[in-house]
Every structure is written in C-alpha cells, then in structure tokens.
C-alpha cells in the first residue's frame, strides 16, 4: 500500500474519522469490560456517573483536569517545535519542589508567597528542561531519552530530599515535606466548592499560549522550526534560541502543574503527588492536535475518564487500569485518524 495526499479533504472526512477513532476506543473499552465479566454499557454508564454524575464528581473532574491542562500545554508547546519533551513528570516535580521550598522556608506573608512560588516553579521547570535541550542543540543528543531518564533521576532526588533534609518532623515517619502555610494556598474560586484558582490559572495559561502561538513572532518562529528547522535556519530564524525559549516555556508550564497541585490541593510534597500527569499530558496534547485551547477540552475528557473509572471500579469488578488502556487506544486511533483525513490509502 502507499499513501496519497488529498488536496482538499471533505468535511465528512475531517470530522468523521476522528469521531470514528473515539467510537473505536469505546468499542475496545466495551470488550475489556466484557472480559472482566461486566456489562459494557453499564460500565460506561458508571464511568459517566463517576465523572459527572454529581456536583462532587464534576468538581473532582475539574480538579483532576487542572494539572493535565498544564502538562498537556507543556507537551503541545514543545511538540509544535518538534522538541520531544517526554520529561513533563520531572518538570512537574521540580515545580512542586520549589513551591514547597519557597512556601516553607521563606517567612513572607501569603499574598507575597503565592505569586513568588509560582514564578519560582515556572523558572525551575524551565531550567530542568534546559539541560536536555542544550544537549540536543549543542551536542545532538536525542532529547527523548534524556528527558525520560531525567524523570527517574528527579523522583529519586525528591525521595532523597523527603527522607532527608526536607522530611516533615511531624510526619509520623512518612516521606513527606512540611506543608506550606494556610495563607499561602491558592484560594477557592467559589467559597465552599472544592475547586481552587489553579484551574483558573490553567485556563489563563491556555489562552496565553494560544495568543503567543498565533499573535507573536516567537509563536511564528516555533511553528517554523517545527515544520522545517533547516528552512527556518535558512530564513534567518535563530533555531537554537527558539529551542531554548520553547524549553523554558514548556518546562515552566509542566512545573505549574506541580505548583498548582501543591499550593491549590495538597499543601505539601509527597512521592505520589503525580500519578503520571506528565506522561498523560502527552495523550492530552495529541488528542487536542497540539492546539492550546483544545488541550483544555481534552484534559477535561481525560480527567473525566480517570475520575469516572475510579468511581466505576468501586461499583463494578472492572480494574481502574481500563482508563489507561482507553487513553492509549484513543491516542493511537486518533493519530491514525488524523493521518487518514489528509491521506488516501492506495493499494499496490
């Protein structure tokens, strides 16, 4: 077989195929539920109910979506420039680490700490990604492997700190840090509802990235580098500098996920702060076709599946890992569907 570009795809093709990808994903999910001896439709019903069936469930989904918007944006920004940042997990923890350090070590009033912690996190995440990116631009070391390996190194570093110098003396032996003061927490958006301003910051970030990508020189340069780095260089785009700026932006966004989880939700740093938000960010970004506003929608969808599957597995005998399988399938089906909107498969 070979592929032939379609000059102008029909609307049915460009919308129908991605929709079909989602349908295929849920067919796989249904089969998995049957494998577990559950009724597929009832299982999906329980997932929807668990994700959006009550005010509590809905708020839980929004809370879970918050870090995913940040990591999804981090991946989307990087992938747009063909910077393969698979290290959002490490950058997230770097952000959480700086947030806790500033929040617990600097005796400043809350209103000063809140922005200071955010800026610190933003910077820390950027710096963490800068290493692999400089290795890429200066020495040609592939950033996929280095960013992946950094995830493991960062988790061990956090573990070292939580069992050593940063250990909470009142933590009953658990490896966790001291909590940041009450007045340095991100406030709730609406009083009484468990949804903090981290969600608001995530939405603002999505809009900001959209503006940067569509209305600024940097956004134009990032796209040029991503489409064809050689041609961009020839046209006078400083490719190395654009890569560095992209890294700072991408790493910083991922770190804000850590900031928002600590300052908005948890208060302290533990080794299970992120159940793989960094890796899930890749799925979120790809489902959104790397569009910053799309990231918000896909983060809500992905968070819904996770929160829903948690609720579902309490009621039915289907393991929660069904959520991870669904997302992996969604990712693979979606990239294939997107390809087929632009190319026709010919035989021979």
């Amino acid at each position: 077989m070979r592929l032939e570009a379609i000059a102008s795809p029909t609307l049915v093709r460009s919308l129908g195929l991605p929709a079909l990808a989602l349908v295929a994903t849920f067919v796989v999910g249904g089969l998995l539920a049957m494998l577990a001896g559950a009724d597929p439709l009832a299982t999906f019903g329980l997932i929807v109910k668990g994700a959006a069936g009550s005010r509590f469930a809905l708020l839980e989904t929004l809370n879970r979506a918050t870090p995913l918007i940040f990591t999804g944006l981090a991946v989307a920004v990087a992938f747009r420039a063909r910077l393969w940042n698979i290290g959002a997990e490490a950058q997230l923890y770097a952000g959480a680490l700086i947030t806790v350090l500033i929040g617990t070590r600097l005796a400043l009033p809350g209103p000063v700490l809140i922005p200071l912690m955010g800026l610190g996190a933003l910077l820390a995440g950027g710096v963490v990604l800068l290493g692999p990116v400089l290795l890429k631009t200066r020495l040609g070391v592939d950033e996929v492997v280095t960013t992946l390996l950094f995830n493991f190194i960062m988790l061990l570093l956090i573990s070292l700190l939580l069992e050593g110098p940063m250990k909470d003396p009142l933590g009953m032996g658990w490896p966790k840090s001291e909590a940041i003061p009450r007045d340095a927490r991100l406030p709730r958006i609406v009083d009484g509802l468990r949804l903090h301003w981290g969600f608001g910051l995530a939405l603002l970030s999505a809009v900001a990235i959209w503006v940067i990508q569509t209305r600024t020189t940097l956004g134009y340069e990032i796209r040029a580098v991503g489409l064809n780095a050689e041609a961009a260089r020839f046209a006078g785009v400083p490719v190395g500098a654009v890569m560095v700026k992209t890294a700072l932006l991408s790493g910083g966004l991922a770190a804000l996920a850590g900031y928002s989880e600590v300052a908005g939700l948890k208060g302290n740093l533990t080794l299970d702060l992120s159940p793989g938000f960094g890796y899930t960010g890749i799925v979120v970004a790809m489902l959104a076709l790397l569009h910053p506003l799309g990231v918000v929608v896909s983060a809500l969808f992905v968070a819904g599946i996770f929160v829903g599957a948690d609720g579902m597995s309490r009621a039915a005998e289907v393991p929660t890992y069904i959520a991870d399988i669904l997302l992996a399938c969604a990712l693979l089906f979606m990239v294939l569907a997107i390809l087929l909107t632009k190319f026709r498969v010919l035989r021979g």
């Binding site: 998995l32 698979i86 890796y279 890749i282 799925v283 393991p319 890992y321 069904i322 991870d324 399988i325 997302l327 992996a328 399938c329 990712l331 693979l332 990239v335």
Partner: peptide, 13 residues
C-alpha cells in the same frame, strides 16, 4: 509512547 502506555496498562489490567 502510545505502545508503551498500551502495553503497560494492558499488562496491569
């Protein structure tokens, strides 16, 4: 990355 996610979660499931 998709295959890694799929294979890992399939094994766990």
């Amino acid at each position: 990355i998709g295959i890694t996610l799929l294979a890992t979660s399939s094994a766990y499931y």
